[in-house]
Amino acid sequence: MSIGNSPEDDRPSSEEERPSIGRVLQQARISSGLTVDEVSATTRVRIPIVHAIEQDDFARSGGDVYARGHIRMIAHAVGLDPDPLVAQYDSEHGGRPAPTPAAPLFEAERIRPEPRRPNWTAAMVAAIVAVVGFVGFTFFNGEDDGGKKRQVAEGPAAEEKPQPTKATNTKPADPKPDPSDGAIAAVPKDKVTVTLSVLEDKSWISAKSHNGKLLFDGTLNKGDSRTFQDDDRIDLILGNAGAIELFVNGKKVEDEFKPGQVERLSYTKGDPEAG
């Protein structure tokens, strides 16, 4: 009987059996009949970065956030579900970062004032005043009616002269302000403010401040909205731009994005103007 490793010890682990992210993306691209140039044109990811990702080199992406975004965009372009690949990337690169909490400015918008309790003392005082006023009015009105009746019994009532009508000057109503004007006035002029809402389907979103701080990285479903604010610039990556309604500094961005289109945008205080 020989002593040695069993055949089971020579079997590759599940991690070794799983193909790398770059190999999966490369095989899917080739199966779809696409070239690297065509993938780059569709996703707007530069050709050297596409080549590097297919070789599992993510250093040229510029960080984990951009690497995840590039993986998602390339996966969509070659017809793959990006979620398993992003999960594989997170497991191989230390996990996903904790989300940044929203700024206190936008938390204040969710606060609702507590309803006031009824002031029963003031209500009782108002009721007493109303009763006293009604009694006084009835009393004096009764005296006036008696005087009028005596006047009718003593002699004919004087003819009532028609009161001259006064011309009323009707002042034209002030025009209602444009809703967009109110939205612009509510936005701080010394900051750049970006608000986006998902109208259809869902979209992956990445937002960063001017100094590279990650404000949000995740998927928003239909009906979800987010607002981001910075002193100088907001950088966005929209995975499904056609599903998003975008407001910059209180004004709606009128660019016609298509469903499934990936957009990399930057906005400053003087926008809206696509970066």
Score class of each variant (00 low, 15 high):
77 A>H: 01
160 E>W: 09
267 Y>V: 06
182 G>A: 14
74 I>R: 00
52 A>G: 08
117 R>I: 06
235 D>Q: 05
218 G>W: 03
37 D>L: 08
164 P>F: 08
27 Q>I: 13
248 V>Q: 04
185 A>E: 13
11 R>M: 15
147 G>W: 08
36 V>H: 00
21 I>R: 00
213 K>P: 01
184 I>D: 06
49 I>V: 10
173 A>Y: 07
125 V>Y: 05
28 A>K: 04
219 T>E: 11
273 E>Y: 11
72 R>I: 09
113 P>M: 04
23 R>S: 15
263 E>L: 05
177 P>T: 08
126 A>I: 10
154 E>W: 05
111 I>E: 09
135 V>C: 15
273 E>D: 14
25 L>W: 12
131 V>L: 15
96 R>D: 11
75 A>V: 01
240 N>S: 15
38 E>V: 10
29 R>P: 07
258 K>E: 14
48 P>H: 08
209 S>F: 00
232 D>E: 13
266 S>K: 00
86 V>W: 01
182 G>Y: 02
67 A>Q: 02
200 E>L: 14
154 E>L: 13
51 H>M: 02
247 F>A: 09
268 T>Q: 01
159 E>R: 14
185 A>I: 12
121 T>G: 12
15 E>G: 09
46 R>L: 02
20 S>T: 15
84 P>W: 11
181 D>C: 00
222 K>P: 02
52 A>L: 02
269 K>G: 06
218 G>Y: 04
37 D>W: 08
100 T>D: 10
128 I>T: 15
52 A>F: 06
83 D>F: 05
70 H>S: 06
93 H>V: 06
145 D>I: 12
164 P>R: 04
51 H>A: 07
184 I>P: 01
247 F>H: 12
109 E>M: 09
123 A>Q: 11
178 D>H: 10
93 H>K: 00
18 R>K: 14
29 R>Y: 00
6 S>I: 03
2 S>R: 06
40 S>C: 09
178 D>W: 09
24 V>T: 14
59 A>F: 10
70 H>P: 00
4 G>D: 05
79 G>A: 07
49 I>Y: 08
121 T>N: 05
252 K>E: 13
